[in-house]
Design a protein around this nucleic acid. Structure first.
Lengths: 195, 195, 195, 195
DNA sequence: ACTAGCGGGACGACCCGTTTGT
DNA sequence: ACAAACGGGTCGTCCCGCTAGT
């Protein structure tokens, strides 16, 4: 009971690194325990199975992002949204960026009822709620719909950061500004779709 | 003799169905040849290895989307963009939608030099070029940057269609309209843009 | 149509090349038919199975060696033996020498009753008889025993040519001379001989 | 619980038996692990791959022969050579003799740079050195060349023991005596030697 | 007489996630 | 904490048949 946490931490650290860099199915437990320097029995003592480790990995990523958002310096709500997307942009520019860990993990878990997918859905609900609350605080009409668009924008930016040449111009701030600029005319042209 | 189509077609069809529904690594060649009703030797006669089948799958998806775009009825360029996103929206609403096949496949192929990744990059270059050309034809200033944003929007919409509750309101058209509405003021305020 | 020789010849040629260079078990029939440029059905039309091709390969090698011996210019029997070993030496020095095809094939056919092994045994009987007859014609006492030793010498020279550094000095002629120099004293010291 | 020896020993024992009796390529790892009574993962825990097991097999055979040579009772160098060839002869007469394990293994490994071939080459260097040292100690002129011939003789005797009818008379001792009897005249007739 | 392609099933080496004993 | 066990899975190749089309 004394030295439990280092082993678990090392396992989660190794898993995070390998799962993110190479994919979940592509990394075996043998490799993780080898890189973590723990025994197999220790692994199965801390995690009932590989999927539980995957879920822990996803949940930890969510915690990291929530903490990062919580550490943002206070600012007017509109600027907070921009600050969040500045972080999104920065993340996408990191050297070995391999895409959004949640999107990538979801690609390997087709069943939406799977605990890993649940954890991913939780994270996404949190992020959408965060944006929507900020838009509401910003006095934005159509806060919910705009939050949906911004979530899509965030996902798409990260996908592009992973898959397209980095020479693609940085369009993050510009995009956020346009999405948030919902002139009354544009918002609800009669008969146009809901958003 | 049930299916008289050539073996290669049956293999590619089965692979497409299974790869998309369950992921690439999660589907073994044994399963594909079983569902295609071909012998293993026949599979390896048509494809040097599994990765070649994956690449064929990706390239076929690209061909399908290009053909679909080519079949769009002629219209003014701006409306063409909207029509394209209507299709994107529709695709995302399909019953067993499992996300963008290119994004999902890329999640399982970390190496950008891998042929599968190359095929994905080719497709993405095509799509971005399609949007940019339409924006140029539409007389849009900032066509390239706006195309980048629209590509991100498309990716994000499809990610959301896969991962979020379908109750999420459809925001596609609204989002496109906002992104395309780039008022001169918003486009390039000196020093605002991030990168 | 590049190669107009009959299919059987092309198959045997390809098989000879591949079997010798890489080993019998290491070369599949698919590869042979591919390099021969014939259809699979054609192969199985000419040879009931792979083993029959192997036997044909072995028998052809035997024929080649017999023909080479038959072409030796006439000479006194003792010099003929030396001439034979000159050829043995030359063969062992060839650039891509891979060892005696009979010894190598036998290593992959443990059953002495197998047709391939029978063909190998036939060849070895021929070669031993050839040497013995020459020794008899040379008026050699102990012709049979000396022939046995010379056969061993030949096999060992070829093994060494394959497995040892080519820097190993050429000892062929010297060895033959010593083996054939059976002084009465050396031949049968009472009680020395083992069997 | 039948066999309490460690798994690695059981694997190597089974591999030795099967590789020697049937050839390396002809024996699959599944068969070895079955006969060793070991799980597949245990095999791959002890040996990175089949080739490593083959190399261990070859190296063990070399160790066995070196130990056997080391156990020979002390005697004058010339008699030691004869004693070594007595052992060679005895080995060749064993009931299920299948030829020299090194020569047979080399027949299935065409690449001289392969670890298995390296191990074989090591063994052969050792044996040649052993003979040469004994000949030197025996005061033999031309020790190196004679050692080469004796190595060839050993290889050839073992090839013949495997491939020819056992009725072939035992010529081992007689052959060694002749090879070692290098009269000054026979050793270096000017211009006789080939290379 | 030959070609092209496909079917078939067993087997090749190797790795999977997991459990147990020590 | 380490070795071992376990059964099934991975991708790929084996040799051999068969049909259909020249």
């Amino acid at each position: 009971v004394i030295d439990e946490r280092p082993a678990r931490s090392r396992l989660l650290e190794a898993a995070t690194r390998l799962f993110y860099a190479e994919g979940v199915h592509a990394v075996g437990v043998d490799r993780i325990i080898a890189e973590a320097g723990v025994a197999k029995a220790t692994f199965y003592h801390h995690f009932p199975g590989k999927d539980d480790l995957v879920r822990a990995y996803v949940e930890e990523q969510s915690q990291i992002q929530r903490a990062r958002a919580a550490r943002l310096p206070p600012a007017p709500a509109g600027e907070m949204v921009l600050a969040i997307f500045d972080i999104v942009h920065e993340i996408g520019q990191e050297p070995d960026y391999r895409g959004c860990p949640f999107v990538n993990a979801a690609a390997e878990y087709p069943d939406p009822a799977h605990p890993v997918r649940q954890a991913i859905a939780d994270h996404r609900r949190w992020f959408r709620g965060l944006l929507r609350d900020l838009l509401v605080a910003d006095g934005h009409s159509e806060a919910a719909g705009t939050a949906d668009i911004l979530v899509a924008l965030k996902d798409g930016i990260l996908v592009g950061s992973y898959l397209d040449e980095s020479s693609a111009r940085a369009i993050t701030r510009e995009a956020v500004i346009r999405v948030m600029a919902c002139s009354p005319v544009a918002v609800a042209p009669p008969g146009v779709q809901t958003g």
